[in-house]
Design a protein around this nucleic acid. Structure first.
Lengths: 337, 337
DNA sequence: CTGTTAGCGCGTTCAA
DNA sequence: TTGAACGCGCTAACAG
């Protein structure tokens, strides 16, 4: 294995000089920089990130913390996009990553997790989809030793950056759109429309935000609104729609999976009402024939999260980053193209 | 950060003694072992795996190499299961992992990849879903410096272990089952049944195996068989079924996604024929109303792959591991329960 | 059986 | 601007 020593020898300089070139230190002559880079190329040298991490203390290592089991299985797509986005970006930026699923840290205290991450040389942590319940993770956020990027969670401090879409605005938009589209379907004299909103998990930040958006939409549109909590569960949403969906004009759901559950319920009840979702997963296209949904670009969000982690490690302070979203109509054609 | 030095001091022994206890060396008195473990517990010491990896050369680091983009997006579920299985098991066994997606090594030569993995301290590599096309990966397999576990690929040498189900047998079974179930639906005098087999990618190992199983089934059942290659693509399978599926009695597909494509084609043609798939992804349950499929436990396969990697690193020779499969019928009820 | 010592490959002072 | 020397936390000979 070719090491920094070989490069130094080959270039006729000292090891430390090579290191300086590698890490873009300012105090290196252009001439020697060229010499070193030349040697690096000729020897096909790739720095050993293990050694670098051990030696420097700002390893640039970032942990990706996620719980792909929590929601229904169709969340796979979301987390896969998260991972792709994060790993691609990290590779690009020369950062090492450690993937950590919740199942791996089950039963650990925040301190345990801190020690574990530390043992892996982790310097910053990206948390995907934290919910209020995660006491342990919330404790972890107070850990002074790490930088954090919280995806879809509202925390911002000097060492915590928050990344996500504007959930309230997005929910507002998709609700308004779906209701508007439905107006023409109503006979005159039908009276005000009624909307069933199947919200997510009561305790989660995104649920609060989306519910806020939904309420605003209902108010502006002058429609009556009933709210139920489906906990992001397909089957719970299905049951809710089964019981209270029949006499509603429209069902708005805080996740695609719940929209799918609601849709199947309506099918079983043998009635048709528009249903809209939130997320933009392809599964929507398979089961619904043209459902509105909010599309989040999870790949891009993860990308940004990694960049924000880097930014923190470079000494910048935490901030809030709002990612764009879009409204789409999913159907089978779109999915297989 | 509490290091091995602190533990040694606290226990009143030498650093190397602690190391020996940590790595289960034989030559340690039970008394000192206890002392050391006591100190470890009291200090909440967690070994720094970075330092261990740098120092020891058999880091136990395993790279997970996968291409979650290759197939259609519904492959997310498969790869997510792979990852969960692999990471859980690795954590359990105290092995570090590096997740590598193909997108990250795009354009690299086998040597480039070798250097990259080396720079990450990787000692063994698990390759998920290698196809004949991947010249680069196939070259990589000849690399002497790594141990390999190939999932769903037939390679076995002293340093390569192969893990996967018996594809021929599984395809045989699901074909026989589906054809048998369909027998009763035929009017007498219909003549021999005809089966359309939508195979995978011509160049892949699993495709060859599954096709072999299908041929055997057709022969034994006395049905006529047409074979087309859908390249594991939903839309290609859809087109194939569109053109040649109408007058067939049954369509057997080498993947669930192709089965879904075929099913949508039949729907569009407004005919019904049984379709069966292969993989056991939940999406099958959403779109088909009771489709047969072969179920592979991807979580378990990845679990085994990691254990096999460890086994190789412990000096054992490569071997072939055949995992069990099962036949299931997927429908919506099963999915949401 | 235990302790001393020399690296692993690199980042980082501090002199020169 | 460059280079020698030390140390990161740990493993692995070797010596005692």
């Amino acid at each position: 294995m070719v090491s920094i020593k070989d490069v130094a020898k080959h270039a006729g300089v000292a090891i430390s000089t090579v290191s300086k070139v590698l890490n873009n230190y300012p105090n290196v002559t252009e001439a020697t920089r060229l010499k070193v880079n030349q040697a690096i190329k000729e020897l096909n040298y790739v720095p050993n990130s293990i050694a670098a991490a051990l030696s420097s203390k700002h390893s640039g290592r970032v942990a990706l913390l996620m719980d792909p089991m929590r929601q229904t299985r169709a969340a796979d797509q979301v987390y896969m996009q998260y991972m792709l986005g994060a790993l691609d970006c990290a590779k690009e930026l020369g950062m090492d990553t450690v993937t950590v699923f919740f199942s791996m840290i089950e039963g650990m205290t925040a301190d345990d997790i801190t020690r574990y991450l530390r043992s892996q040389g982790v310097q910053s942590v990206i948390i995907f989809g934290l919910s209020q319940e995660d006491r342990v993770i919330r404790d972890l956020l107070h850990e002074e030793d790490f930088y954090f990027v919280a995806v879809d969670a509202p925390f911002v401090t000097d060492s915590i950056t928050s990344v996500g879409i504007d959930n309230a605005e997005a929910q507002y938009e998709v609700a308004v759109k779906t209701v508007s589209e439905n107006l023409s379907r109503l006979e005159p004299g039908h009276g005000p429309q009624s909307v069933l909103y199947i919200a997510g998990k009561g305790s989660s930040y995104v649920t609060a935000e989306r519910t806020r958006g939904m309420k605003k939409a209902a108010e502006e549109l002058g429609v009556s609104l009933s709210i139920r909590y489906g906990d992001f569960s397909e089957s719970k949403a299905r049951n809710i729609a089964m019981v209270t969906g029949k006499d509603k004009d429209i069902i708005v759901c805080a996740s695609d999976m719940m929209a799918i559950g609601a849709m199947y319920a309506l099918k079983e009840l043998d009635v048709f009402h528009p249903v809209c979702g939130f997320d933009g997963i392809t599964l929507m296209g398979y089961v619904g024939q043209g459902m509105n949904t909010v599309r989040q670009d999870f790949y891009d969000i993860a990308n940004t999260a990694v960049k924000e982690a880097k930014r923190l490690m470079e000494g910048e302070k935490g901030r809030q980053v709002v990612m764009p979203h879009e409204l789409v109509r999913m159907n089978y054609q779109d999915v297989i193209l």
